[in-house]
Design a protein around this nucleic acid. Structure first.
Lengths: 136, 136
DNA sequence: ATAGATGCAAAGTCTTTGCATTATA
DNA sequence: TATAATGCAAAGACTTTGCATCTAT
């Protein structure tokens, strides 16, 4: 089972199921769910919950962040940001709280989709919307 | 319908359904889902997708972040962080990407639960785990 | 033989949808 | 009357679970 997750990017259960069946043609969905759950509990893989999409699994169990392309759907890894830094960002709001972790997903177009859609060649440092705009 | 969301914190569909029924005893779940969907599309409320929990709705439609208490389940609001700042954090990884938005949820114990559980009186600036530890 | 893993399908949770009915302009 | 919203229940997507069977010790 573990080989399946080590071989791909951020597959969903359905993809893992199909890939597993290529090697074990009569494996069942239930088994895939059960094993994936177990593997993530044991820290071999990381369960990803992005929006309300079906779960994905990340072969990298270390905490890190993600970028989700809203065009092609690809999920990329982003580095982990120090919780201390995060906390200083929200120090007023989080006074008295005990922070255990966080989940950050940035949405947008990946570099390939950005290029394809040809937004006047904008790139990372000019394409950012002004904050407070894109939520409404 | 809108009064329901303005009256509470971050209710789930089930809670909104129950509250609505107090005033409109024969409203149906389907109607609640339909109207909530519509209200969030129109920007009156904000749809919240935290982990793989059932959807919640936030009366505040402006983009902002959230803190989820892993003990009592409460969801608190956190201020919005400039996308520009976020981006500078990940400038290397996001080169060429077009950023549209992000979703950040911090997990932990809210101040009430922290106090109740009495973790040696730790507070916001000493309770943080060292980064890279809490994920496994 | 025993303990655990698996296949299969049923069940569960949350959400969406079809359609006749009801309310509103 | 025409248009849109609603109730109700069925259906849908994703996930979990029960149980008999199979595997490995």
């Amino acid at each position: 089972m573990e080989v399946v997750k080590n071989s791909t990017n951020h597959p969903g259960v359905d993809e893992i199921y199909l890939r597993t069946r290529e090697k074990m043609p009569h494996v069942s969905l239930g088994t895939v769910y059960r094993n994936l759950e177990q593997l993530s509990e044991q820290g071999y893989v990381q369960k990803l919950e992005i929006g309300n999409e079906p779960k994905r699994f990340d072969p990298n169990p270390a905490p890190h962040n993600h970028f989700k392309c809203s065009s092609c759907g690809a999920v990329e890894d982003l580095p982990f940001v120090s919780i201390k830094r995060l906390q200083s960002e929200f120090s007023e709001s989080l006074r008295g709280h005990r922070i255990e972790g966080y989940q950050l997903t940035i949405y947008g177009l990946c570099s390939r989709c950005t290029a394809e859609q040809g937004f006047n060649g904008v790139s990372n440092d000019t394409s950012v919307q002004d904050e407070g705009k894109e939520g409404g």
